[in-house]
Amino acid sequence: MGGDLYALDFDGVLCDSCGESSLSAVKAAKIRWPSLFDGVDSSLEEWIVDQMHTLRPVVETGYENLLLVRLLLELQMPSIRKSSVADGLTVEAILNNWSQLKPIIMKEWNEDRDALIDLFGRVRDDWMQNDLSGWISANRFYPGVADALRFASSQVYIVTTKQMFPFLFKFQSRFADALLRELAGVTIPSERIYGLGTGPKVEVLKKLQAMPEHDSLTLHFVEDRLATLKNVIKEPALDRWNLYLGRWGYNTEKERKEAQSISRIHMLDLPDFSKKLK
């Protein structure tokens, strides 16, 4: 019979949640460090949110957004600096050295990871419960993606198992479904949306390829995280999958260059992605 099946990452491939996560991080940072935000005007907050778009690829877990917001604030306001790394630090240096910087500032600021996770989750949860339309509108779909999904001739599955929304464990699929319906005008059956709690992405891909109805289909997996694709490559059982790294997603130039050197990974631009789905 033939045909194609596309397993698509959600955040960073279909949807750009950076605006929402950055605004949530600013809200949470004001709660955690209220004195640091005394005298911070709207223009500085806007600058921080703008820089967060550049730094988004380094975020693996949502609470890190709070750390980035505070570090950016220290870059701009020397009088409040409490971290040894802030002096002379640039946004580009944060992007390239985040894994080394994070443990230093966590220690120097005397922060607890679990407490920050809880705070960030509660702030986002409150926003969703009290202003769902505002929360939804702070997200966006990448240009052309909505039409591509609406008119896709391939079988489409959403695989959104990132730990970006730990507090949404029970309704991660509902979150994706709400954004798809409200922002993209697309309804994807719930059984085709794999959210938190369905296991690592490699396990989801194994489930999809094991379904008898998919035996004759060509399998494609589109992701914006290089590390995720490298995990798939480590699994010989997943050799059937064609792997793609979306250039438009949350990845860095360094990661894109590395991906180009890996034969299993195809680099994908947004217009070509939309054409493939259609």
Rank of each mutant, 00 (worst) to 15 (best):
M106P: 02
F273Q: 10
D126T: 13
R113K: 15
T54D: 14
L208Y: 02
A93W: 09
M211G: 01
Q155Y: 03
I104K: 10
D114F: 06
E253F: 01
T160E: 12
I117E: 14
S84M: 08
F120P: 13
S99Q: 13
L245M: 08
L67D: 04
E213K: 04
E235W: 01
R122Q: 13
F171G: 05
E92L: 15
P236Q: 03
T61M: 03
Y142A: 10
R32G: 11
D272K: 08
C18I: 02
A227G: 14
N110K: 09
V159C: 10
D126N: 15
Y157E: 04
Q129A: 15
L119Y: 09
P271W: 00
M128P: 04
F151E: 08
L68W: 04
H266T: 03
G39W: 11
S153M: 01
R264L: 00
Q100E: 10
S173R: 07
G12S: 08
D4G: 12
R192N: 13
D114S: 14
L149A: 08
G62Y: 01
D126K: 15
L95A: 08
T54K: 13
C18K: 00
I233V: 15
A152T: 02
D112Y: 03
L268W: 01
Q163A: 13
I136R: 12
S21F: 04
V156S: 02
C15D: 00
A138W: 07
P57R: 04
P143V: 03
G62Q: 03
L5N: 05
S35A: 15
S154K: 10
V156Y: 00
K275H: 12
E203T: 05
G144S: 11
Y157H: 07
R181L: 14
